[in-house]
Design a protein around this nucleic acid. Sequence first.
DNA 1: GGCACAAACGGACTTTACCCCGTTTAGTAT
DNA 2: ATACTAAACGGGGTAAAGTCCGTTTGTGCC
Lengths: 205, 205
Amino acid sequence: MDQPAVLPVGAPRTERADAVRNRRHLLATAREMLAGQGADTLTMDALAERAGLGKGTVFRRFGTRAGIFEALLDDDERAFQEQVLSGPPPLGPGAPPLERLIAYGRARAAFLIEHREIARAALDGSQPVPAGAQTPVSQMHIRVLLGQIPLGAADLDVLAMQLTAALDGPLLLYLSASDLSEAAPQIGERIARGWQDLVERVCRP
Amino acid sequence: MDQPAVLPVGAPRTERADAVRNRRHLLATAREMLAGQGADTLTMDALAERAGLGKGTVFRRFGTRAGIFEALLDDDERAFQEQVLSGPPPLGPGAPPLERLIAYGRARAAFLIEHREIARAALDGSQPVPAGAQTPVSQMHIRVLLGQIPLGAADLDVLAMQLTAALDGPLLLYLSASDLSEAAPQIGERIARGWQDLVERVCRP
DNA sequence: GGCACAAACGGACTTTACCCCGTTTAGTAT
DNA sequence: ATACTAAACGGGGTAAAGTCCGTTTGTGCC
């Protein structure tokens, strides 16, 4: 087994400047293309060409086609997460956990429906992308809130997973509908009410 | 607007014999390949060649790669559905609906874990294939059972969707795990217990 | 500034799902 | 039997994701 070569004392822990620049540029270009044309015309070749970069670079930055949409969604999601972690109640801290849980579901539904185009595109990936699995942040938050609610002897990890799936399931169904954007508000409201009902049923003593 | 040509009086409503034969042959060949090699070596070209048929035929029969795995799964699922619809209680009719619901979750978990390889492969499809969405049979059965349980004023359609997702979510997570087949029984048991707990919480008065 | 090297880049190449369309065949009516 | 039609077949063609590897570039050290 080789030592990792010389390993210059101050190994660069940070991303190179050009890499950062290119990632940003690619994301911006991707957003443009998404806004201008549909998501299907956003091919890796097209993106690379429009950004004036090589295809290899696109793959190096994002790994996969779905990775681009995930990155875009992550980007948008940062603001949302901040509301959850330190915004005003009932979404943010300060409200009783059950109310926060209910508010979280409503907010998440609203967020995904608002960003439906990107969210839908992020589903494409050919790797196994099940419901609540690929949303560790969401699941963790739900898990934490559940921990603050008195539930009898329950497998909290499994319950968190189930609730995450129960929240995402209807949303994914909506996102994968063909028409899309039709009657979004009503659907969001219905999902939010359903979520509230489910959570209250599960958590009542 | 043209009339549909002559339309010979007895238009053939049934699938042609060669089509049926080829579908069966392709499914059998696919099973062979699946058993022999992994699922990734089962490409459309390879399947066509091994079956001695044209590639176009494979696509005509199944439409898409995932379609093959769905067909295989459907095939296996027929027996399962029969148990549900007319087998002995508590899975089949005769038991109280809540018990049937619990038994259904347990049985479905066992079924999917048993057929994990095919089930996993069936996830591939590039079209939006979320959790509980693509399982209308499962969802409908849950929906029907829910209808037989006294729940207050609840949106039963949404609740059925949520529960379907809550059942499928953990299973899909397991199916998409990289190791797979490791500790399958324990996982199945944990999911089954979690399902029972969830359903009892939701349905208690 | 000059050096060394890991990281990043680019674009040709490979693989595979899926499409297209000319040809063949099963099934029916006469 | 024969003719006819819709369905099915075959397999070459296309597009797009993802890989490879030789070349270039940013960065820390002297």
